[in-house]
Structures are given as structure tokens and as C-alpha cells.
Amino acid sequence: MSSALQQVFAHPVSLKDVQTHFCPGCQHGTIHRLVAEAMDQFGVQDRTIGVASVGCSVFLYGYFDIDVVEAPHGRAPAVATGVKRACPDKFVFTYQGDGDLAAIGTSEIIHAANRGEGMTVFFVNNTTYGMTGGQMAPTTLPSQKTSTSPYGRNVANDGYPIRMAELLAQLEGVAYSARVAVNTPKNVVQAGRVVKQAFETQIQGRGFSFVEVLSACPTNWGMDPLTANARVAEEMIPYFPLATFKDTSAA
């Protein structure tokens, strides 16, 4: 008997083999990989239309090997509504950051979810505006210092961080809503399962699916990648608990 080497972990086919612009330790790349792996698994790459938001996530059209529409800031769910209604046989997803989805796009996401549009939304929550220089976002944690809250977020003035996954789970049109993190290998595996559940929700035509992913932003948090990754477990997960808040397939 002899032995051979078998490849057990490879680059997903739906993800282009290119260098990303993301900073070292930024977990957008991990989340891109999980979405691309789900596309590969369900075999929907050739009928997927992505809708890109504004922010660091905007360059997904250069990284996913699919067709992409670029939406104005915050309006990805509105554009995706049009795409899905015009082409109901396509797999349609948006991929948005917290500044895009939870601030300027709050109206669009809530109404698209409430209408139960058959799309999937991937929401990357890193508690800050990444691309524009680390300003305070609606998801910025209490006391967190950002370039527009230099003394820390004061909840008396600025309000509290929004828990989007819980908020959307209240809406009748939402079929699936969950929050995951990608800070440890275990959480990455769990996140991969949840992303696939969200894909399944759309493929079965059950309604709107939403996945919030907690992500590190070392550059704007002013931390090295390992400290930033540790902050996800220490500060973010206690405020943004990891759970599946709604799953109509389980009912």
C-alpha cells in the first residue's frame, strides 16, 4: 500500500484568483470565501446576480466571478428587489457593510425585508465606516472611539448600537435571520453552515434571508490584526450575540 496527497481545501471556483484590496486581517475576504463556497455547492454561479453596496464591500464585482450590479449608497436591497422581480429564476444577493445597510440604507433594508423579497442579504458588521476613515456607525459599540466619536460613543447623545439581525427577525416577510462571526475556525465553520442555510432559503423560494457577520476592522480600530480579532470575541459578541433568530424551515 502506498500513499498519495489529496487536496482537502481549495480556493472556491466562484471566487476569482486575484489579490484583494482589503487590509491585513480584514475578514471581508473570509466572508467572500464562504459566500463563494455556497455558490459552488449549490451550483448557482452562472445564474447568480450580486448587488454591490458602497463601502469596502463595493469591490466584490472584482472578486466574485459572477454578474454584479452596483447600487447607490444604501440602496442595494431596492436594486436587488428590481433584479429579483425581473429575473425570478436568478439567485440574487446583496453584500453590504454596516454604514451602508444600517445607516443610509435602513429604510431600504427594512422595507425589502418586510415585503419578503426573495433575496439574500449578507451584512458585514465591523462597527465602523471602514472605507471612509473609521467614522461612527449605527453599530459602533458604546464608548468605542472612532474618528467622529473621539471620546467614545456617548449613548446619551448618539443612541445605542442597532442589532439588525434581531430587528429584521420581527418582520413577517423574513424567512431566515441569523448572526455569525468568523473570528475562530469553529465560528468560520458555523458561519459557512448559516450562509448555506440562507442560500437554501432563497433557492426554495421561502422569502427574505439575512445573515449578519461580525468582522474585524484592524485599520480603523487602530489595532493589529490579532488584537482586532480578539476584540470580536471580547466586545462584539457580548453585545451582538451569535444565534439564528428566525428560520421558517424549522417551524
Partner: peptide
């Protein structure tokens, strides 16, 4: 493949020794 799963840049490929 824990290292490959957490790598944000998908820079790691993993092979496993199998008996044939």
C-alpha cells in the same frame, strides 16, 4: 485546514495524505 479556514486572503491550500 483550520489555518486555511481562518485565512482572510484564501492564501492557503491543504492536502491530506491518503492511503491507496
Amino acid at each position: 485546514a483550520m489555518c486555511a479556514r481562518i485565512c482572510p486572503d484564501v492564501a492557503i491550500t491543504i492536502f491530506k495524505k491518503v492511503n491507496i
